[in-house]
Design a protein around this nucleic acid. Sequence first.
DNA 1: GCTTGACCTTACCACGGTTGGAAGGCTTAT
DNA 2: ATAAGCCTTCCAACCGTGGTAAGGTCAAGC
Lengths: 139, 139
Amino acid sequence: MNIGDAAKASGVSAKMIRYYEETGLIPPAARTAAGYRVYGDQDVHMLRFIRRARDLGFSVEGIRELLGLWRDRDRHSADVKRLALAHVAELRQKIRELEDMATTLETLAQHCHGNDRPDCPILSELEAPTSRRVRPDIR
Amino acid sequence: MNIGDAAKASGVSAKMIRYYEETGLIPPAARTAAGYRVYGDQDVHMLRFIRRARDLGFSVEGIRELLGLWRDRDRHSADVKRLALAHVAELRQKIRELEDMATTLETLAQHCHGNDRPDCPILSELEAPTSRRVRPDIR
DNA sequence: GCTTGACCTTACCACGGTTGGAAGGCTTAT
DNA sequence: ATAAGCCTTCCAACCGTGGTAAGGTCAAGC
């Protein structure tokens, strides 16, 4: 199987397969005499694994660890669980940050008239946070 | 005021101030005879504006538009509001994606024994996903 | 045979946003 | 005069992905 077929079968683009090989996330593929990379079902299996881990937001480094455990028949599921929950914590942290941004902005927008006048609490807040200006900016 | 002082006063690193100037987000600063950039209170004001917009997750492009409106005395607050709410929508979209990831992963982790045995539903799911349903039909 | 088109190869450039460093000039205080 | 601490420009890197160019290879059809 050439790289294009492996890409189609795994959902990982040929570009990224080469990148993953180059960065050592996956072992170098076998080659034909002409230098073409050759993949088997096992390789596609691994690529699909990687694809799904990325869909779950794991970084390439995280996937490296997951792959290590995946290949380790003597792994402890506790290690996998720990990795997963650590990632969940990161996700939740990120979510909190985005949520804070969104609610802040939404609150500001609620107080913005949204008409053809220039005064707007969103810009005021960006100008000087926490201490909302009492008068509009007259320059 | 030199760039270092402007950086301290605004919370935007000197590095980024130069970058913003280079990319045209902010106008070129005045220079001393020796080529040092010189900043005034007005400039620091603008840099703080940028800093806060970034804290709210606006992209540099978004900030460019915000700055335009900020400087436009004849702006319509409706335009600001529209910009802000569009950004809120993006944030919420991103939050939904991360939330889906976290929920999926958390559910899988709940079913993982987390002991010294190798079998683990997290790895199983990554190998061959059983269900694409990521969260109960809340929406 | 020979051409065509689809594939493969490596090697670059780009993005966004930020950080780091190197090499050299300027300012200020000692 | 010299040291320190600024400043300047330029160049590289990060992540993950996409693109593009120049060339090699394979299988088909004529």
